[in-house]
Structures are given as structure tokens and as C-alpha cells.
Design a binder for these strands. Structure first.
Length: 671
DNA sequence: GCCGTTTTGTC
DNA sequence: ACAAAACGG
């Protein structure tokens, strides 16, 4: 082997067990384990308070595990991971770098750029699959194209001709590289105002890979059996609680799969159908996680843009008041409010309730789904870009297998389904604690004397429904009619031959949220609710800040965006109505809308490590020591006529202002 | 026990 | 909306 040492770059693979990059590094000789904290690279998705808290704990545990094995974790604060890596390489004389794949758009671009740069500097770079059962490019239909629905995808995963890799044991010992010229920097994950709230988290959660392992065992030997039966309960106690562990890669999903399979066989032999059903159901939720990466890889903008374009002209309600009421759990629908209060208080929500509150957000309030997604990102302990994007798009109905858009779930009925005795509501809405179960999910119907006896004054200490269900239905119909009209007139204009340069000026005017986040919506199609109050209150929830963007203001953001972010808005989530956008040529209206541009950027796999002999037979290489690195390239072999308006035009709209996107674009054109 | 009808669950 | 499951005459 080479004389220099290897760098193992940890990201969201914070474990020593079944970590292929670490294993490869150890096999190659001396190892320097590195973690780089560069949240600015995440753009709008600077992690929320609870997520950062978790990361902090997890890194501490990883460090102590590494110390037991013979080295320690080098931590660096950076605004540019790649240059930090280069510095570390220079100071240590490392000759190799190992890392595990990530599939979110920013990581794919950054990692590819990193690999190009390091390789041109003479460093050997190798990357691995540590996050998935199968790499996205392995799971294809009979024509070799990616699947577009979850069911098909998951069926194929479960019937692949080969099993996922078996989990690897942790290394017995790590020979440390020379750390003397490579000192760690202290990483700061919380500010003073957050410490108090964070202290509570430690009572409920134990981050870190060894705790993840325990949590997995506890779940498999406990609640798993009844998982299927309990799925309709709002109560979190029956869930696995593994998602934050999985998000940070403290737990290998292959290990989860492996252990579940063992249980499955066991229970199948015993004829335990309950158990079998539970395993299948839980496996499916693992599958959804896989699918979220799959979708992100194949449709790299799925966290920002709808996959289906059929709602392109939907007049989303831009109403700060609604949004705030939802966040605070003051919508007047007890199940929704209880969920939002739980989320606020704990950073956690049962999947069922996530669906309830999200669907209420999109269908009843008709707020744009990306706001909700961003709020989830900022508040959830297991905030995960790919999963959350998949979930919100599913709820919104912009996936090929999503639900019908005009179906509105009624929180009152869902309440009696998921929380038949009202326990969940009473726990999180103390003001309703004394209301009898008969009325607990629809207090607005309760007789006055019942309310009085329960100490409730609707509109005072508990709100009346923010929107009545029949009004919501009517409004949804009306909005759909509007949408079709917009669509028709837009099409008419196009057919009359008004030409525009492809894509460049045809996009919709972005609506910023919060402050700096662009929403791809057309101003014309936005309804501003007449009842909107624009009063802002800053005593809003002490929820993990909407990214107070402590560090925002790098070269890629325009100053107007930075300008309107204030310290005192920490707890508030004001909405910026597009007016002070990012200064790009964004003032395009519906009338100029181009037809959906059907250039699909499928991701291509290139084997750009010819040294690896295993890659001779294309992308289905099962080799774990991957020379296979995901790279984008434009592809005209579109599998997605159904996916309208994807990627390209949006890409172009943003190119001027976003360095990362620039790189992305460059890569996609030359790759 | 059978077939039309209602209910349920859906990523 | 639709298919599977449960229901019921």
C-alpha cells in the first residue's frame, strides 16, 4: 500500500460498525477520521436546533468509540468542505480519501466536485454505499429505467437477484495517522438560548451509534411484534424511534434489514402472522426511506419542486396567519393542534400524525407544501431532507402514486380513528382536558353547558376552527377551477406562438420563505387571503429557530436577503412575499409560462475509478469498495414524460446566484 | 356458503 | 379513486 495515510471522511455515517469507508481506510493502513461542520453548504437547510443537538451528541460518541479503537475524530469548522479536506491532506500528507455516499442534491454535487479536485491533486478517492440496501442505480425496471412508484420500487428491492450486503463488524483496532499537524476545532452546535430547551432532549433520547444499536434491539424484541396492530394509534410509544439514528447513519440500514429478516423467518416458521405482517410493514417504512434517496437521486430537485406539474397553476394561499396558527397548534382542530404542540415541545411526531397535520396544511389551509416541509426540517429531531420531501410531495399529490388532490381528510374523523379516547389530545391540549370524549375531536359542536363545565370558551382559550371543513372543500374546488383556467389560458398563449428563450425567463416568480427561500410559484396564481393579518408577533413558539442563518451572507446570497433577517425573528417565521426577491430576472408572469420542458436529468453512473476491476460490468456492480460514484449527466432517454417541468428551467433560473448550482450545472453538462 | 354492498386502507 | 376486505342478506 501507499506510504501516506488515509482520510476517512465522516458525514451522515456516524458509526464504526458496518461502515465500509472506515473499513476500507483501516485496511489501507493509517487512518485519520475527519468530520467537517460546514452547514452553510446546506443552503436553506441549515439544521434546526434539535437536529444540531443530536449531531453534537452523536459526534461525541463517535469520537469516544474511535478513541477506544486507537484514534480520534478530527473536527473542522468550515464553509467549504472541499478546501478543508485539501488542507487536512496537505498538513497530514494523506494520499487516500474514503467516504460513504449521500444522495441529497447538494452532497451529490459537492462530493463529485470534491472527487474531481482531489483526484487531480493526486489523491486516491473511493466511495461506498453505507446508507442503503441497494444503490439507486441498481434498482431498475426491465427496461433499465428507474421506477416511478414506491410499490414497484419496493417490490423490486425485495426480489432482487442478490441480497443487500451483510453488515460488517467494527474494526478491532485503528492505527491512527499522525494527528499532530492536524488539530481539531471546537464545533458549536447550540447557542445560549438553546441550551435550556436542549437539556430536556437528553431525558428522552440517547444519540450515538451504540445507543442506536440498543434501540434497534429493544424495538425488535419489543414493539415490533405489535407494530402492525398498533399502527393506527397516535401514540408514539409503539414506533421504533430509529429515524434520527438512521438519519445520521448511526445505524446501518443493512443491519436493520438483516435482523428483521431473521425475525421474519422465525415468525413465519411459527406461523405467527401478526409478527410477519408487522415485519413487512416495518420493512416498508425502511423501504420508504430507501425510496426517498432513490427519488432524490433520480429527481434531484424533489425537495424544491413538485414532481408532477399538474398543480403548477394552483393558487396556493399565502397567509402568514394560517401558517402561524398551524405552527402554534391553534387551528381549532384538536388532533391537528395536539400534533403541532407535540412537535413543538418534543421535536417528534408519530408518522400518522405527520400525515394528518401535513394534509391539513395542504388541503384545508392550502398553504404551499414547501413551507410545511421547511418547518418540519427546522423542528423535527429526525429531520431528513429526502424523507420529508417525499412525504410532503406524497401528501400534496405531486407524486405519480400520491393521493388525489381533492380528497380532504377530516381531522374530526381521523381523531376518532387514531385517538378514540382523546388521550392524545388531552395530553397535548390541556385546555381541552376536561372535555368529554364525545366532543373531544369537535368541540365546536358541543353544547354550551358542556363547554362551560369543561372550562372552555371557544374563540378565547381554544380557537374555533380556522376554516370549516365544508368551506375548505368549497374553496378547494374553487381553487381547482381557477387552476384549470390559468392552465388553459397559459396553453392558449403558448399555442399562439409567443416564444421565449427556452427556460431562462419563463419561470415563475419566486416567493421567498423564510426570508431567503425561494418558492417556485407564480405571483399571479397566488391568492392572498383577504382575512390575512400581517401583524407579526415575536413571542411565537420557542421552536428551533427557522435557521437564524447565523452564517448566511456568503457570496452566494444577495444582500437583500440577508438584510431582512433579524435576530428578533428567531422564533418567528415571517413570510416574505416575493417582492424583495433575489434580484434575478424573476418577474415573469403566467402569461409567459413555457410549456413543461421535458429534459430529464437522469443520473448516470460512471465508473471513474478504472483502477477498480470490479466495475467492468456496468452499474450493477455489487462491489462494496465502490469505484462507483454517482455523477449527473443530462440524459435524453427520458423515463418521465409524466414528470413535467422538471429540473432544467429551474436550474437555469437559479444559476446566476448559486455557486453550488453552478457547479451542478457545469457537471451536468460536461459529465 | 355465495355474491352484491359497504367499509377500509392506501407512500 | 380504487382495490381488497369485511359485511350481510
Amino acid at each position: 500500500m501507499s506510504s501516506g495515510c488515509s482520510i476517512v471522511w465522516f458525514r451522515r455515517d456516524l458509526r464504526v460498525e458496518d461502515n465500509p469507508a472506515l473499513t476500507a481506510g483501516v485496511r489501507a493502513g493509517n487512518v485519520i477520521a475527519v468530520y467537517i461542520w460546514a452547514p452553510e453548504e446546506e443552503g436553506h437547510y441549515y439544521p434546526g436546533r434539535v437536529s444540531r443537538w443530536w449531531l453534537k451528541q452523536s459526534l461525541a460518541l463517535l469520537d469516544s468509540s474511535l478513541k477506544n479503537l486507537g484514534t480520534s475524530l478530527v473536527t473542522k469548522r468550515s464553509t467549504d468542505s472541499v478546501s478543508s479536506l485539501l488542507e487536512i491532506i496537505k498538513s497530514t500528507g494523506a494520499t487516500q480519501l474514503f467516504f460513504n455516499h449521500l444522495y441529497d442534491p447538494l452532497s451529490l454535487v459537492r462530493d463529485h466536485r470534491m472527487k474531481e479536485i482531489l483526484t487531480s491533486n493526486g489523491i486516491s478517492v473511493r466511495s461506498f454505499n453505507a446508507d442503503l440496501l441497494y444503490e439507486p442505480w441498481e434498482v431498475l425496471d426491465d427496461e433499465g429505467r428507474p421506477f416511478n412508484t414506491f410499490t414497484q420500487f419496493w417490490d423490486r428491492c425485495l426480489s432482487m437477484p442478490y441480497d443487500p450486503e451483510s453488515p460488517q463488524l467494527p474494526p478491532k483496532k485503528i492505527i491512527s495517522g499522525n494527528l499532530s499537524k492536524c488539530c481539531s476545532e471546537t464545533l458549536i452546535f447550540e447557542d445560549e438560548s438553546e441550551k435550556g430547551s436542549n437539556a430536556l432532549l437528553a431525558r428522552a433520547w440517547s444519540p450515538g451509534w451504540s445507543n442506536a444499536d440498543k434501540a434497534l434491539a429493544a424495538f425488535i424484541n419489543g414493539p415490533l411484534l405489535e407494530y402492525s396492530k398498533n399502527r393506527r394509534k397516535a401514540d408514539s410509544a409503539t414506533t421504533s424511534f430509529l429515524s434520527p439514528h438512521l438519519h445520521f447513519g448511526e445505524l446501518s440500514v443493512r443491519k436493520v434489514f438483516h435482523l428483521l429478516r431473521i425475525k421474519q423467518v422465525l415468525w413465519a416458521n411459527e406461523g405467527n402472522t401478526t409478527g410477519e405482517e408487522s415485519v413487512n410493514l416495518f420493512l416498508k417504512s425502511i423501504g420508504l426511506r430507501e425510496y426517498s434517496r432513490y427519488m432524490s437521486f433520480n429527481h434531484p430537485y424533489s425537495h424544491e419542486r413538485p414532481l408532477l406539474g399538474h398543480l403548477k397553476f394552483f393558487p396556493w394561499v399565502i397567509d402568514e396567519g394560517y401558517f402561524k396558527a398551524w405552527r402554534q397548534g391553534r387551528t381549532g382542530y384538536p388532533l391537528v393542534d395536539a400534533g403541532m404542540r407535540e412537535l413543538w415541545a418534543t421535536g417528534w411526531l408519530h408518522d400518522r400524525i405527520r400525515v394528518v397535520v401535513a394534509s391539513f396544511f395542504v388541503k384545508v389551509l392550502q398553504l404551499p407544501w414547501r413551507w410545511g416541509m421547511k418547518y418540519f426540517w427546522d423542528t423535527l429531531l429526525d429531520a431528513d431532507l429526502e424523507s420529508d420531501a417525499l412525504g410532503w410531495q406524497y401528501i400534496t399529490g405531486t407524486l405519480p402514486d400520491g393521493r388525489e388532490f381533492d380528497r380532504i381528510d377530516n381531522p374530526q374523523f381521523e381523531g376518532y380513528k387514531f385517538d378514540p379516547n382523546g388521550e392524545y389530545v388531552r395530553r397535548w391540549l390541556p385546555e381541552l382536558a376536561r372535555l368529554p370524549t364525545e366532543w373531544i375531536h369537535h368541540p365546536w359542536d358541543a353544547p354550551e353547558y358542556v363547554l362551560q363545565a369543561a372550562g372552555i370558551e371557544l374563540g378565547s382559550n381554544y380557537p374555533l376552527p380556522i376554516v370549516k371543513m365544508d368551506e375548505a372543500k368549497a374553496r378547494l374546488q374553487e381553487a381547482l377551477t381557477q387552476m384549470w383556467q390559468h392552465e388553459a389560458s397559459s396553453r392558449a398563449i403558448l399555442e399562439n406562438g409567443i416564444e421565449e428563450g427556452l427556460g431562462d425567463s419563463s419561470e415563475t416568480a419566486p416567493i421567498a420563505f423564510p426570508q431567503d427561500m425561494e418558492m417556485e410559484m407564480d405571483e399571479n396564481t397566488l391568492r392572498t387571503n383577504p382575512t390575512t393579518t400581517t401583524i407579526r408577533h415575536y413571542e411565537d413558539q420557542m421552536v428551533p429557530s427557522m435557521t437564524t442563518s447565523l452564517f448566511r451572507g456568503g457570496e452566494e446570497e444577495s444582500s437583500s436577503e440577508i438584510g431582512n433577517f433579524r435576530e428578533d425573528s428567531r422564533a418567528e417565521v415571517p413570510i416574505n412575499q416575493g417582492g424583495d426577491g433575489d434580484g434575478e430576472g424573476q418577474t415573469v408572469r403566467t402569461g409567459n409560462m413555457q410549456p413543461p420542458i421535458d429534459i430529464t436529468r437522469a443520473l448516470r453512473i460512471t465508473d471513474d475509478l478504472p483502477a477498480d476491476s470490479s466495475n467492468s460490468s456496468s452499474s450493477s456492480s455489487r462491489e462494496r469498495d465502490g469505484g462507483v460514484v454517482p455523477v449527473w449527466s443530462p440524459s435524453t432517454s427520458s423515463f418521465s414524460e409524466t414528470f413535467v417541468g422538471e429540473d432544467s428551467s429551474y436550474l437555469q433560473r437559479r444559476t446566476q446566484s448559486h455557486q453550488l448550482i453552478n457547479n451542478w450545472r457545469r457537471l451536468s453538462q460536461t459529465g
